[in-house]
């Protein structure tokens, strides 16, 4: 599951632009991930300029399949 580090997000939208299933919701100062829709591709984790997002599932490695 993708987790957002509390109070760290800058709300820049970079992750939203690459999310293949459009499941990240970004308001002026609020970010939410729809975990039902999320396919755990980890692309958002890679692209975030300040690494606010992380994959909590330890079994998943940062594989290249997503790219």
């Amino acid at each position: 599951m993708i987790e957002v580090a509390e109070n760290k997000c800058d709300f820049c939208g970079c992750c939203v632009g690459v999310c293949p299933v459009n499941c990240i919701e970004l308001k002026e100062a609020d970010i939410r991930i729809d975990h039902e829709l999320c396919i755990d591709c980890d692309i958002c984790v890679f692209i975030c300029p300040i690494k606010v997002l992380s994959q909590t599932d330890p079994k998943r490695t940062s594989s290249s399949e997503a790219a």
Binding site: C12, V16, G17, V18, P20, N22, L26, F46, A66, A67
Partner: peptide
């Protein structure tokens, strides 16, 4: 860059990594 409007309308705007 965070555009969702196009995708809601079925236009493919997702940016590749």
């Amino acid at each position: 860059v965070e555009s969702r409007v196009g995708r809601w309308a079925g236009l493919e705007t997702t940016c590749k990594l």
